[in-house]
Design a protein around this nucleic acid. Structure first.
Length: 584
RNA sequence: GUGCCCGUAGCUCAAUCGGAUAGAGCACCAGCCUUCUAAGCUGGGGGUUACAGGUUCGAUUCCUGUCGGGCACGCCA
């Protein structure tokens, strides 16, 4: 029966599925219809005959004939041609193509929703930068990618939770706390230099000032007490000595500050987290959960998960440390979970964290990581396998590095010297919309060359404006028309028979499949390219035809089409975190 | 040295998880505003998909090797 709310492609696939079943009841061919590259090859092409030919021991073109003959009665297909080695080229009736406009106008921003996810619970973790300093442009890519992907997955029918893993335990936080304290002491005239492996950024001094304002001299200790029996290593000395000196300073801070150390630690963490949250919020990125690493220690989850691995016989002791036999699960070498000094490694808390993700009942778990962490994946999966979890439910899309270009020159960045461009600076320079879009304009696992000049340019070279302009143009026309847009759903769509118009109908017809493909491949860039193509076709149509024509029926039909396009543009941009202005 | 990723037009990148004649944008050349926004449109030239084999009806896509580039190889996170 006719079910108009199903996308055209779904209905056609169903017809061919039935035909295939008639021709070869025992075969299970999963071929689906595709858009051919050339329009002369029909609106859709089917390659099922090619796939079936071998097992039926018949020429493909003959099989194609049988399939066509077996197609059920329908009002969608105009005709089928057999072409090339045995493709079936399907030509769809105009009325079936025009129908999509009404569908979009009826469903509005629900057009494109798919049931791919089947309401499965999905957890996506991204950014998860150490709260030890401002987010930089690399984190921005992870934020843009993760948030856009989360939106797309949600539209594709998953129940999505977004999570940020806060590394609030461990040595890095201690180093930040100490760095802040030394800067604080300097405000009282201290001469102690910040070690080279401390945090050098200006934000550390800002925190120091803030803490001095708040706590006055509560945390002050004279240099001779801070440095008692401690010798600062030479500036270009061995790295090991510098690390040792840092640990000694941290121990000294804990000793001198007593319970105040923990307060300072908490204060520093809170300030950094707040900064990070505000930054991301302004970037249009929000999270459902900020998951604390420290909570895994406090709850005993880390200890528990290590004990469980031990009970299952996957741990052994060597050189004083506790090792996990990850080689038993395909990893290159075994990994330490507890150091000789009794402290758990980051790996240990990460096992506990991922076990926790599984225990919370997510069907699909997505970790968005920087590509430099790719070597870390096998050991996490190994540990989860050892604990009995199905690691096929965990996927780890990798996000590659970002290089900034200004005036054709690469902008030099160095974490060591704290010479990195922050996400905040980038947003201020190019704006949120350009930043969000440029980040996902490349496949995530490819290096990204971010052209700052292009992102700022108000020209046709800039894809952000190009897409937004298409949306604004449509609304400019609609506001000039000044009619009731809700009434356009009743337009006579059979009047739309130009090539441009059919091209546009085809594009908005494809929107659900684009969402599905982007969700399946974890590839938001697919959506960005689609929106560029849709904007391009709209601009082309705009230049070739007048919309506000005297013939009222034709005028309303064309307005219905462009209104539908504006809805898809707006929805797609929203998924990517980009605004859709009504005027520009 | 070992593992993972990548190599497509002069440049930046796509290519519907093996499909038909590999596509866009930039740059270059030639055109389009007394008409709904020219932040736009129309037309043109440009390729041995790094290289060599293999798998099959069919390969940019899958396999092997070579060359070239990136990343990772800690009791760091």
């Amino acid at each position: 029966m006719n079910t108009p709310s199903l996308p055209l492609l779904t209905q056609l696939n169903s017809l061919f599925h039935q035909a295939m079943h008639t021709v070869a009841p025992s075969e299970r061919i999963v071929s689906t219809l595709e858009r051919p590259k050339q329009s002369s090859h029909g609106d859709y092409a089917y390659n099922g005959a090619l796939q079936l030919a071998k097992s039926l021991k018949l020429p493909p073109r003959e099989v194609a004939n049988k399939i066509i003959a077996a197609l059920p009665e329908n009002h969608l297909i105009e005709r089928c041609d057999i072409a090339g080695p045995g493709f079936i080229n399907v030509f769809v009736k105009s009325s079936a193509k025009q129908q999509v406009i009404q569908e979009v106008l009826k469903h509005k921003d629900a057009w494109g929703n798919t049931t791919l996810g089947h309401d499965r619970k999905l957890l996506i973790e991204f950014v998860s930068s150490n709260p030890t300093g401002p987010l930089h442009v690399g984190h921005g890519r992870g934020a843009s990618f993760g948030d856009s992907l989360a939106n797309i997955l949600q539209k594709a029918g998953f129940k999505v939770s977004k999570e940020y893993y806060v590394n609030d335990a461990g040595r890095q936080m201690d180093i930040l706390t100490l760095s802040t304290w030394l800067r604080y002491l300097a405000l009282f005239g201290s001469k102690i230099a910040l070690p080279s492996n401390g945090y050098q950024g200006e934000y550390v001094m800002d925190m120091a000032k803030l803490i001095k304002d708040k706590w006055k001299d509560t945390l002050y200790h004279a240099d001779e007490f801070v440095l008692l029996h401690l010798d600062a290593p030479e500036e270009d000395g061995p790295e090991e000595a510098v690390e040792k000196y840092m640990d000694a300073l941290i121990a000294r801070a804990k000793f001198l500050l007593k319970e105040h150390y923990e307060s300072l630690h908490q204060q520093v963490l809170a300030l950094q987290l707040k900064d990070c949250q505000e930054d991301l919020q302004a970037f249009g990125v929000s999270f459902d959960e900020w998951f604390s690493e420290a909570s895994l220690f406090h709850s005993g989850a880390v200890k528990k998960v290590v004990e469980e691995l031990d009970q299952k016989g996957y741990l052994y002791r060597q050189d004083g440390a506790l090792w996990f036999k990850s080689t038993a699960f395909g990893d290159e070498k075994d990994r330490v979970v507890q150091r000789e000094n009794g402290i758990y490694t980051y790996f240990a808390s990460d096992i506990a964290y991922h076990a926790n993700k599984f225990e919370r009942g997510f069907d699909v778990i997505v970790d968005v990581w920087g590509a430099d962490h790719h070597g870390y994946i096998p050991r996490v999966k190994a540990a989860l396998s050892a604990l009995g979890y199905n690691t096929e439910r965990l996927t780890v899309p990798l996000v590659q590095f970002v290089s900034l270009f200004r005036g054709g020159e690469k902008v030099q960045m160095s974490t060591r010297k704290a010479q990195f461009v922050t996400l905040r600076e980038l947003r201020e320079e190019v704006g949120n919309d350009a930043a969000r879009l440029f980040y996902i304009l490349r496949k995530s696992d490819q290096h990204l060359d971010f052209d700052l000049d292009l992102a700022k340019s108000r020209s046709n070279d800039n894809p952000v404006y190009y897409i937004q302009y298409a949306h604004a143009r449509i609304h400019s026309v609609l506001s000039k028309w000044a009619g009731d847009t809700d009434s356009l759903v009743k337009s006579d769509l059979s009047l739309l028979n130009l090539d441009h118009e059919f091209n546009l109908m085809q594009l908005i017809e494809d929107y659900p499949d684009i969402i599905g493909a982007a969700a399946k491949d974890y590839a938001p860039h697919t959506l960005a390219f689609y929106l560029k193509a849709l904007a391009s076709e709209l601009h082309s149509y705009y230049n070739s035809q007048q919309f506000l024509v005297e013939d009222e029926s034709l005028c309303r039909a064309r307005l219905a089409l462009i209104l539908a396009i504006s809805m898809v543009l707006k929805d797609g941009l929203k998924l990517l975190g980009v605004s859709a202005p009504l005027t520009m």
